[in-house]
């Protein structure tokens, strides 16, 4: 899942760096506030690194390996888990050349932010029913969503000729299948560790994130309703009325809040999700800019 340099457009690589820095910076702040043990994070990172070497043979001559984002989040909590995975990715990039320098931001976003935080929230949402079920879905869905983000990033890059729809579908489909193994391993490890060390569990409020997630999921419905009532921007109506020509040369990454080549509702949903992430990151930066 590591993206090497050369796959991403520079603007997307830099955008992903900005997003990752904001989340990792916020996580660092949280970890420092809670005075979490650096040794613990470092050793768990090393353990995740080592367990990534366990390859599970897949019929057809290939193999899949454990990624461990959700596991890191569940074992250490989302913030320390994010730092642990960032550390693993940094070592992989700087020692093994696995994942490039400019694409490291995107790799951190996919495997240290999306995988860890999504995994952790899924686990927390489902643990009341069953911890095993929660950690299985956390492992499975976190890796599938991470892979989907890889698809979106490389699909939006002009350097990569596949459309965002193809890239995202392929990545999500294969990792959706392979992710089942990730889910099984995550459930097994979490069950074993928590049965021996119940105090390792972590808690965090999730009201705000639930509300934001709900709004993102509702965004295609608004797009549908806008289409039904024939809604257009008032200025656009005026321009049509005045017979003005469109001379805009740059239409942005998501023209008209859609993603080129993708179903318009799915495009609205994804562009909305990306927008929310950007604004959340900016809000976090703004909130903590004056703190230190």
């Amino acid at each position: 899942m590591h993206i090497p340099d050369g796959y991403l457009d520079l603007r997307i690589a830099l955008l992903m760096w900005a997003l990752s820095i904001s989340v990792v910076g916020f996580s660092l702040k949280k970890v420092s506030e809670k005075k979490e043990s650096n040794a613990m994070i470092g050793v768990i990172s090393a353990a995740i690194f080592a367990s990534q070497m366990l390859n599970w043979p897949i019929p057809g001559g290939t193999s899949a390996h454990f990624v461990g984002g959700a596991l890191a989040g569940i074992l250490l909590g989302p913030y320390a888990g994010c730092i642990a995975m960032t550390s693993v990715l940094a070592v992989q990039a700087l020692i093994y050349g696995d994942g490039g320098i400019f694409s490291l931001g995107a790799n951190i976003w996919n495997m240290a932010v999306v995988s860890v935080f999504v995994g952790w929230y899924i686990y927390k949402a489902l643990e009341r029913f069953s911890k095993n079920l929660g950690s299985f879905f956390a492992g499975w869905l976190s890796i599938t969503l991470s892979a989907s983000f890889v698809g979106i990033e490389i699909g939006l890059s002009t350097a990569f000729k596949y459309s965002v729809f193809v890239a995202t579908s392929v990545m999500a489909f294969w990792h959706g299948l392979l992710g089942i193994i990730e889910g099984i391993i995550t459930a097994g490890v979490v069950g074993y560790v928590f049965s021996h060390r119940a105090e390792s569990e972590e808690k965090l409020s999730k009201k705000a994130v639930t509300l934001i997630a709900l709004l993102i999921f509702l965004s295609p419905l608004f797009a549908y309703l806008a289409e039904i009532v024939g809604y257009a921007e008032p200025l656009e109506n005026l321009a049509v009325h005045l017979n003005l020509k469109d001379t805009q040369t740059y239409n942005g990454l998501f023209p008209g809040y859609t993603i080129p080549g993708m179903n318009s509702y799915l495009g609205t949903f994804l562009s909305g999700a990306v927008g929310v992430v950007i604004f959340l990151s900016l809000a976090y930066m703004r909130k903590y800019a004056s703190a230190d």
């Binding site: 660092l28 090393a46 730092i83």
Partner: peptide, 18 residues
Amino acid sequence: EVILEIVWLTYRYTVVMF
């Protein structure tokens, strides 16, 4: 510095953990 320290620990303990 915190992240560098953690990265350094990851590097040092990978062989041990493996």
